[in-house]
């Protein structure tokens, strides 16, 4: 029977919604137990949020000042020390998980399964390749299964649990070669998180400038939506990088995705394939985005957005 360890993603105060999605994935492993490990400097609050996720057997809280920032080189040896007790070690396929888990797998001498999108059995999974243009079914060899979970493929588990929280000390030597310097966020704390949001309003190169992006933000605020962007919009400096959606940005699955001035390159589409309903507004009737949009509207975004706002008011 599987014994699963999930590494919680959080910012020190709040548990990231991706953790509850990994839980849903873990539920497909017919596990005997699913435990969540919270690594933090002071993690009581986060541990409590983790304990509330339905299906969690136990939360392990590993507090250590070194754990203040989620640095792979520091977390990995601690997780490796725990790993032998488990059959599966999972983390979300966010930049947090992507950075961390291969470092663990390499030390455990097992391969890693990246971006699990479907569980067929405890060792057999589906994962996307070629920016999601093909899916492979893979079987993990003997040994611990280390994997990252494509969060867009799983919904968040319910929050009706109340697992016990167990404090753990892990005494392994931690390296000093990697030091956190700073984190610059784009300061959109009051807006929904792009990866968790039910609605996303996204802008591309067609939006034209940083100033023009205000119309995208305004519409997002009216809808209670998060703001996304294409790579071209990020590259042009219209909007910070953490808004990028796509193969090399965030892969998201909101209920509603509204794109404005995005052509729909395959690398962008790779990020929104699992969205519930896709709406595309583009002035070019032949833009490839219309091939996958549930509702397409041909026209100038600067005329359509004011109309939309009026209709919504």
């Amino acid at each position: 029977m599987a014994k699963v360890l999930i590494i919680a993603e959080h910012d020190g105060k709040k548990l990231n919604g991706s953790t509850a999605r990994v839980m849903t994935c873990a539920q497909g492993l017919s596990a005997e137990s699913v435990e969540i490990a919270v690594f933090a400097a002071e993690g009581a609050a986060v541990a409590e949020q983790a304990a509330a996720i339905s299906g969690v057997t136990k939360v392990l809280l590993i507090e250590n000042p070194a754990n203040e920032h989620a640095t792979a080189a520091i977390l990995a040896p601690q997780i490796e020390a725990l790993a032998s007790e488990y059959s599966h070690v999972l983390a979300p396929s966010t930049t947090f998980g992507k950075d961390l888990t291969p470092r663990i797998a390499a030390h455990l001498a097992v391969p890693q399964i990246s971006d699990i999108m479907r569980v067929e059995s405890p060792r057999i999974f589906d994962r996307p390749i070629y920016a999601g243009n093909a899916v492979i079914t893979v079987e993990a060899p003997e040994g611990i299964v280390v994997g990252t979970v494509r969060t867009a493929s799983f919904s968040e588990a319910e929050k009706t649990g109340s697992a016990t929280i167990e404090k753990r000390e892990i005494n392994v030597e931690l390296p000093s070669h990697t030091r956190f310097v700073k984190l610059e966020t784009s300061g959109s704390a009051d807006r929904p998180d792009l990866q968790a949001a039910a609605k996303v309003v996204s802008g591309g190169r067609g939006v034209g400038s940083t100033e023009n992006f205000k119309v995208i933000y305004d519409l997002a605020d009216k809808l209670g939506a998060a703001v996304g962007a294409s790579r071209a919009a990020v590259d042009a400096g219209f909007i910070p990088n953490d808004h990028q959606v796509g193969q090399t940005g965030k892969i998201i699955a909101p209920e509603l995705y509204m794109s404005f001035g995005i052509s729909g390159a395959i690398q962008h589409l790779a990020g929104i394939k699992d969205a519930g309903t896709i709406v595309a507004i583009n002035k070019d009737p032949d833009a490839p985005i219309f091939e996958i949009a549930d509702f397409g509207l041909v026209g100038d975004l600067f005329e359509i957005i004011p109309e939309l706002e009026k209709a919504l008011a």
Partner: peptide, 29 residues
């Protein structure tokens, strides 16, 4: 060489249902 992940099969991703074009903002809303 490390123990390998075995690829059992490769398939095309599930295609999205083709959508429709709407003619106006009102129709979209």
């Amino acid at each position: 060489p490390a123990a390998a992940v075995k690829v059992l099969k490769t398939s095309a991703p599930a295609a999205r249902q083709a959508g429709i074009k709407v003619a106006s903002v009102d129709e979209l809303v």
